[in-house]
Design a protein around this nucleic acid. Sequence first.
DNA 1: GTCTATAGCCCGATAGAC
DNA 2: GTCTATCGGGCTATAGAC
Lengths: 220, 220
Amino acid sequence: MSTKEGPQTSRRGPYAKSAERRRAILTAAHAVFAAHGYRGSSLQDVANLAGMSQTSLLHYFPSKSDLLLAVLNWRDSITGDGTAPPDPEESLSDAVLRQARFNEDVPGVLELYTVLCGEAVTEGHPGRDYFTQRFERLRRSYARQLAQLAGEGRLRPGVDPDTAAASLIALWDGIQTQWLLAPGSVDMAGCLRAYLDLVLVPEENPERASAGALPLAPLG
Amino acid sequence: MSTKEGPQTSRRGPYAKSAERRRAILTAAHAVFAAHGYRGSSLQDVANLAGMSQTSLLHYFPSKSDLLLAVLNWRDSITGDGTAPPDPEESLSDAVLRQARFNEDVPGVLELYTVLCGEAVTEGHPGRDYFTQRFERLRRSYARQLAQLAGEGRLRPGVDPDTAAASLIALWDGIQTQWLLAPGSVDMAGCLRAYLDLVLVPEENPERASAGALPLAPLG
DNA sequence: GTCTATAGCCCGATAGAC
DNA sequence: GTCTATCGGGCTATAGAC
């Protein structure tokens, strides 16, 4: 990483060009996999969209499964893998809702995630380990954040942090699927907000109560 | 449907045999699609498992997409399509938890549902309409049941029946995916019960309170 | 690094004998 | 109804010229 960028011809020409090519392939693969899934896509489709031959594509990614894993990791590096150290200034609710709205606006992100996640539960799918580990990581991360809130009395009594963590992730994934099949009939952010309002206690601020707070009158 | 069962040779021989063959194919296709998804499966795989040639299979189901739709409808006729008129003796919670535990015990049911549902969001997938309509039907059915409970004061104040209906379905689907990837780490029925306990008010029966009821003390 | 050519295989669907 | 044979095509991956 010093001034000598490359041992080959020009300073950083080949490296930069190679990186550009890889990025073009990843962009194309993201779109193709999102539209047809992993098994429904071909390397030829990706190569055509990227403007190169199928064999040139295989020069950068030696196999189709390597390309899939590269796309998944590339997606994490852009949208975040969901376990980035949470900004202490931002509440859990705000972070979840912000991410949900962001995903809704970027075309292909939810399609890719949903179809690959579904495919990944099948035998021998190259993305299976990725999603297994992703879910474990996410459950741990949210459970930790929810346990922290419980310690501050911000979790509704009787709510188990581990259960709520898995449920939040599940609700999120499931509502994305419904939204993809009927965008006009499903309110992703609304469902997530409603769940968080059920699980969390609004911050103690009697002067400016949270807008989404539910009436919490005793029942029965 | 009178005494004359068939216009062909023996009384009901040919029809019965044909129905058996179709059932054998559907059983095999269910297993193969569950293990590899629709795009990852071949008619040859299904035919091998059913003990016949691939062309014989196509005699009963004229195309691969026809076979898929037949499997989906066959599954509905066995496990119920989720909108069967609810037994008035059984509560919503009991019905959901019973179905969840049933699905957990029948091998392949959740695998099939999860992978096909994920694939179905892709372009041109033959199961897309099925899942779109299924979700619409389920949302209406649960929303109606929840609205009825709301009228009886059994819904937690501030909970919207439509939002809760979509959320319940989403949570259910999402937790199935997590369970398939980590059966030992996820408690499907526990997550569903926890959500229903958050949304529903336990039946008014001061002498025998619901076992899963949460403390509902006022907060904040 | 890029390409053409192709190996080697699998696919869904059809034709037609029996 | 069942089969063999096959059509016409697509697939991943490799070989090798330039």
